[in-house]
Design a protein around this nucleic acid. Structure first.
Lengths: 139, 139
DNA sequence: ACAACTTTTGCAACAAAGTTGCATTCTTGT
DNA sequence: ACAAGAATGCAACTTTGTTGCAAAAGTTGT
């Protein structure tokens, strides 16, 4: 394994480009979820806004990242852990935590979403759970 | 009780205006969550975009509506049930369901969010749960 | 019912988020 | 190294959300 980001891209059948590597490395380096803005300002090299949008969409499609719901109308994304980078549409089964203090959004991979029973007639495809509060490092 | 919407507004200490009544009535009439766009096109009378944004913010502050997280960066709002219209900041303890078919987002008031145990050091303030799938009426 | 006061509204102008089409540049397999 | 296909950058645009300010409401006491 020469380079982790290159590997991930190749394994997903994507061509390896500067932009994709850069964005992927940013995700690997930062432990938390990133919004488009974080990526635009966080990449060492500068990439076009459109390229970032398209790259995020590609990563989503390939299951490299997942999007995290929020009430502030900013879409955030985080790396999927290795076990789910295989196929296209996939389900992350972990809880997301958003810290009110530092505004970081994290994946709590070790906490899985509890099973819920919906009323008859509802077909469940995906479950998302976001907990807001104060994170470990901010207390 | 002459008028439900007027009542809610007065109980929350808000002055009763045409816009607020209209938007509130739209929420009462529609059983599901509404985005800004739904309100703009759904009101019988036409109101300025800014007015709608501000009204939604006011309703949020007063605990008349709550916002529902989504991954599509569109904020949706739904009426809080009576028991929580009292104070400002409040927590809704029910699950939200988003139907892939009809694109409606509903509050499943009868299904409450299960208790989760986070790792030590995390302080929980609010929990949101959104289930995606196919709703009762679409099957 | 009316004046005085406080809120709310609409307008303009702006900032940020997200999308689409097209020509140019880069990747990749051979 | 080359041709075919994919990704990028640019321009232009749509949608979402915000702010300041003057005009138009709503509210309260008399």
């Amino acid at each position: 394994m020469i380079n982790k980001s290159t590997d991930i891209l190749k394994n997903s059948g994507l061509s390896v480009t500067a932009g994709r590597k850069s964005i992927l490395e940013l995700f690997i380096a930062s432990g938390n979820a990133l919004a488009h803005q974080d990526i635009e300002s966080g990449c060492s090299e500068q990439f076009d806004r459109v390229t970032i949008y398209r790259t995020l969409q590609t990563f989503l499609d390939k299951g490299i990242i997942h999007s995290i719901p929020a009430t502030d109308s900013i879409t955030r994304y985080a790396l999927c852990n290795e076990t789910c980078t295989t196929t296209g549409h996939h389900h992350d089964n972990h809880i997301h935590f958003r810290c009110e203090q530092c505004s970081k959004t994290l994946c709590l991979d070790e906490v899985s979403i509890p099973v819920v029973k919906l009323p008859d007639g509802y077909l469940i495809q995906e479950i998302n759970m976001v907990v807001t509060g104060i994170c470990k490092s901010c207390r």
